[in-house]
Design a protein around this nucleic acid. Sequence first.
DNA 1: CGGAAATTTGGCTATATTGCCAAGTTATGA
DNA 2: TCATAACTTGGCAATATAGCCAAATTTCCG
Lengths: 112, 112
Amino acid sequence: MSEQRKLQGETRAHIEARARVVKALAHPSRLFMVDELSRGERCVCELTEMVGTDVSTVSKHLAVLKKAGVVLDERRGQQVFYRLRVPCILNFFGCVEAVLDEVGRRELVQIS
Amino acid sequence: MSEQRKLQGETRAHIEARARVVKALAHPSRLFMVDELSRGERCVCELTEMVGTDVSTVSKHLAVLKKAGVVLDERRGQQVFYRLRVPCILNFFGCVEAVLDEVGRRELVQIS
DNA sequence: CGGAAATTTGGCTATATTGCCAAGTTATGA
DNA sequence: TCATAACTTGGCAATATAGCCAAATTTCCG
């Protein structure tokens, strides 16, 4: 009578909430910005300079991160500073790196 | 003369590699399957039953995870079993949960 | 061999994401 | 108040994703 877990109801709602956060991180520019923000707050203009795309694009990426609860913003004068809401993003990256290491090792043997 | 880090060259390549992995996880069904696989290997039929969509859809999701290096597959008879390539995905989730906790706390105050 | 079970792949439509430009906002300061 | 700097938002075209059905593939077994 062990019930099999299914992607339904509460489980589904919870998983979808998780997915929303992960999705917010699933873009090179956003990942880069989060990594940069892990070193301290940055204003939009700094991030824009680093990312190298249009300010409007950066602003929209930041809005995605903000909506997902990954970053917080604070206006100070003409500038808006963003910072991470939660600091553990680095651990998060640690695991991603582990995957990349494995993938790299595999590719030494066979390029699939 | 402190060089500002930019999303270019090697940095860009590395960040894009990371993003590919994160992207692979950025879907409710795939996140659910990874979570399930953290408990042990499962065949496609089991995952299909749990996820509740068409087998072909589940198969494609698994192909995405495989291509990103998150899972490994092994055929045994008529079935194909998938398992995590790297075990640390759980830590990964830990951080996502932390974000969700923050978001939840915020939403108690104001629904943005 | 011939059929059934388990998976993968092709193909297609619907939907979501990106990124740029242009236009609108907010704050500073002459 | 006006001009300017720093951001955000609207809108649009190009591209990427998701999920379903139908058609292969791969194994097992009688």
